[in-house]
Design a protein around this nucleic acid. Structure first.
Length: 840
DNA sequence: CAGTGAGCGAGCTTCCGCTTGACTT
């Protein structure tokens, strides 16, 4: 047993550091926080100075037990968790749970993992900083109070199981408000003019500073152009510089990987995690843009070697990010000498991006020369402008240029670089002048990455939570990335060529989006409710202002329970008031009424957004209201009366085909055709009301073909398909992923047999118990957990379960206990039976 | 939940941050 036990947060870090410390030191990891407020219940003694009740988290019991054992054997325990608020708290929780009062305990920190930094830390130990710990407790308690008091208000006033919190609710707010900006945006059109001139055989592209409101004005202008002589009016040359961006933080890595590689933020994180575990890059959850001295030296050496001395320009970057805690370095390669790394192409590409960005940050500026040429026409007032840029010295551009989010930028008339020799007064001939009608564009919807950028600017959330937050708001149904259909509009184009003006009418798509975040109806209703009643917490500056107070607590200038009390008292009063007086919210909008005077309205129902004709009345003899779900691409805020009336035209009987009825309807998964026990989805963009019988039969046939078995194995059909996790084959109710190794379109019979056999063996391997006569199985499940399965009932058991030792009796008892919790809809009462066919 | 949109109402849901995990349709 080793004399010294060092505890860090991450196992990969533990491995590295153990190498630096050598004999006499054992380095272990806590895997993050080990203790927390219980998952269920408030877990805070509000009456008693907000004392939090802490317990070792279920999935950390094993880790804690092992650390306890090692602690006993060690002479000195070194708490080497991160140097920020959460890290300090982890150390304190370890101190408390491992019983370190009786031990020689030292707190050490380093914000870079280099040999000198680690050895330095060992020579300069300190004590746990309880002020910093208290700042973390305040953060934790505040988040629990906000989350667990606001959520129940939503359950009562809107819908059960909803959630609210300091971070997620503001995230949703950003998306809801952006959508409203887009909806309310007044798009105006104007004619933008571009021209191509020729000088000594070279084409010069340019554009006009002014745009024209009407076609008439534009035509007039082009007529003047046709009668004009053009000449160079002015030439201006200006030197310019470009500097490299700092190395990556979590947020900027997510943005660039999204722009340049098309990765989602969670994919970026999991690919980066692999590179980190392989020792290729430094820690990927960081808000720092700082590089260690060792790293800067490494970069300098590599730049000089690979590109030459003149390309090297060592730099130290200072963060401007609000609330940055800088417990780690920026994200960089562990060795700059390694130009390429990773086990597959996604790892390769991300590593390449990280390497280039970090290297570029230590390289010289690029030197440019920008040229602006003004061109005048004899019969027009306005000047055309041509711009060019020449690179005099590449500098960092040799390896890397930061991407841009697409902006409202129609200017693509920049010349590639060099203009032909020219002087003021030179005559130009017109190759073409083109005026195109362009609409102003509303702000862009957020992508995952641009949302992360915004959150970081507001100081909301942390590197470790950006990706999970985006998942949460989607999982709660507040936000989706569903495709938004394009609309079509006309625009005009006037072209002057060879002295002749031609007019064209063209069409373009607009308003559609793919992979962009937008709110659902429930997200919008929840947001409006929260903003109206809890403006303080939903304020974009709420986090920033409490962060300031956390800083004061960390400095020892403020008492944490005082701070929480000051927040909680008015907040809690507001919660109580809202519970008592707040109205139930359903996002209801009355769109009109029928001839009989019944309301036609839309609102959120038990199963989502719906339309309704008539109201439920007290009198049982009154007719029941009619209901219909909204289509996926419709929303409460924008649906029209006409669209609502169309909904009630479904289900629609199209007639029959080969002895079976063909019915068009709208369901949980969108519009579909029902035909002989078979459901066929109607493709996106196709109006269900426009589908006629021949089209329906076409779709049915296509589906039958796609579903046709591709093989038969042990008497059961094998089908193929493509789902959320890529291509699969289906056999005997099992989904079997077909990985890239196979050609999914042309699977051979041998491939199919192999895939099935491998899957079958996997299924057998994960079974721990199988009581066949009872129909009960115990199987291995994800995260080291176990599942008890009986028919459709599935109970998840924690990791710590000794699954092998479970007896049938114990398992049966579990199933019994679990049953009442599983709410099963009541059996259909014969009394509510409806007619099976609508037609008489 | 791919025909729904109440029900008597019990008992449930929920936060943010720090880690890794390696399954799912």
């Amino acid at each position: 047993m080793s004399k010294n036990l060092v505890i860090v947060e991450s196992p990969a870090k533990a491995k590295t550091i153990e190498g630096y410390l050598g004999q006499g030191f054992t380095v272990k990891s806590s895997f993050g926080h080990v203790r927390d407020i219980p998952r269920k219940g408030m877990g805070i003694d509000i009456e008693n100075d907000f004392t939090p009740k802490y317990e070792v988290s279920e999935d950390k019991k094993k880790v804690v037990a092992e650390l306890k054992k090692l602690t006993k054997a060690a002479e000195t325990v070194w708490l080497a968790t991160d140097e920020d608020r959460e890290g300090e708290a982890i150390s304190w929780h370890l101190y408390e749970t491992l019983g370190l009062e009786k031990k020689e305990t030292k707190r050490i920190t380093f914000n870079e993992i280099t040999k000198t930094a680690v050895q330095n830390a060992i020579e300069n130990p300190r004590k746990i900083n309880i002020d910093l710990v208290n700042a973390q407790q305040a953060r934790r308690v505040l988040d629990r109070l906000v989350g667990f008091e606001l959520s129940p208000v939503l359950w009562k006033k809107i819908k059960p199981s909803l959630s609210a919190g300091r971070v997620q609710s503001v995230t949703v707010r950003l998306i809801v408000e952006r959508e409203r900006e887009i909806r309310d945006f007044n798009s105006t059109a104007s004619f933008k003019v571009k021209a191509e001139f020729v000088l000594n055989g070279t084409v010069i592209k340019s554009d006009l500073g002014k745009s024209f409101k009407t076609e008439e004005e534009t035509l007039n202008f082009l007529n003047q152009c046709a009668a004009s002589d053009f000449e160079i009016n002015n030439i201006e040359k200006k030197p310019a510089k470009k500097s490299p961006a700092p190395p990556f933080t979590t947020s900027t890595l997510q943005q660039e990987a999204s722009r340049k590689l098309g990765y989602s933020v969670s994919r970026t994180m999991s690919v980066a995690q692999k590179l980190y575990e392989a020792g290729r890059i430094t820690y990927m959850r960081t808000d720092s843009i700082n590089l260690s001295q060792t790293a800067r030296n490494g970069a300098e050496a590599e730049i000089k070697k690979a590109y030459g001395n003149e390309f090297s320009h060592p730099r130290v970057f200072k963060t401007k990010t609000k609330g940055a805690q800088e417990a780690h370095e920026a994200i960089r390669p562990t060795s700059f000498a390694v130009h390429s790394a990773g086990n597959d192409s996604s790892e390769n590409r991300l590593y390449d991006l990280i390497w280039k960005r970090a290297i570029a940050s230590q390289m010289s500026e690029a030197k440019l020369e920008k040229t602006t040429v003004k061109i005048a026409g004899s019969r027009i007032q306005e000047l055309f402008t041509a711009r060019g840029e020449i690179i005099l010295f590449e500098g960092f551009l040799k390896v890397y240029l930061e991407g841009k989010d697409d902006e409202n930028d129609d200017v693509d008339s920049d010349n590639e670089g060099i203009f032909p020799p020219m002087k003021k007064g030179d005559a130009l001939s017109v190759k073409m002048i083109e005026a195109t009608e362009r609409y102003t564009r509303p702000p862009a919807r957020f992508t995952e990455a641009s949302l992360v950028k915004k959150l970081e600017e507001l100081g909301i959330g942390r590197p470790s939570t950006y990706a999970p937050t985006i998942t949460t708001v989607q999982k709660r149904g507040y936000v989706t990335k569903d495709e938004i259909d394009y609309k079509i509009r006309n625009y005009g184009q006037l072209t002057l060529k060879n002295g002749e003006i031609k007019t064209k009418q063209l069409t373009e798509n607009y308003g559609g989006d793919k992979n962009k975040l937008h709110p659902t109806d429930i997200g919008t209703v929840v947001n409006d409710f929260l903003v109206e009643n809890f403006e303080g917490v939903l304020d974009y500056n709420f986090t920033a202002s409490v962060e300031k107070e956390f800083d004061d607590i960390a400095e020892g200038l403020m008492n944490w329970t005082e701070m929480i009390k000051k927040f909680y008292n008015p907040f809690h009063t507001k919660v109580e008031n809202t519970l008592e007086h707040g109205e139930r919210q359903s996002g209801e909008r009355v769109l009109g009424e029928t001839e009989k005077g019944e309301d036609i309205l839309v609102r959120i129902g038990r199963y989502g957004p719906m339309a309704q004709i008539g109201r439920t009345s007290e009198d049982e003899n009154d007719p029941k209201p009619r209901f219909s779900s909204l289509m996926k691409n419709q929303s409460l805020e924008t649906i029209t009366l006409e669209e609502v009336m169309d909904l009630f035209k479904l289900p629609k009987d199209l007639g029959s085909h080969e002895g079976h009825e063909v019915i068009v309807s709208n369901g949980r998964f969108g519009p579909y055709i029902k035909y002989d026990e078979m459901f066929v989805s109607i493709p996106r963009g196709e109006e269900p009301l426009d589908v006629d019988l021949p089209r329906a039969i076409e779709l049915i046939k296509a589906k039958q073909e796609a579903d046709a078995p591709i093989y038969e194995y042990e008497g059961l059909p094998v089908q193929k398909g493509s789902g959320r996790f890529g291509p699969f084959i289906k056999w005997n109710d099992m989904f079997i992923n077909v990985n890239k190794k196979y050609d999914h379109d042309n699977l051979s019979d041998e491939d199919i047999v192999e895939l099935i056999e491998v899957k079958k063996q996997k299924e057998i391997d994960k079974v721990i118990h199988n009581w066949e006569e009872e129909g009960i199985r115990v199987e291995k499940a994800r995260w080291g957990r176990f599942n008890v399965i009986k028919g459709k009932t599935k109970i998840e058991l924690p990791k710590t379960t000794k699954a092998e030792k479970l007896t049938l009796e114990e398992v049966k008892a579990m199933i019994e206990k679990a049953k009442p919790a599983k709410k099963k809809p009541a059996k259909k009462k014969p009394a509510t039976k409806k007619k099976t066919t609508k037609k008489k």
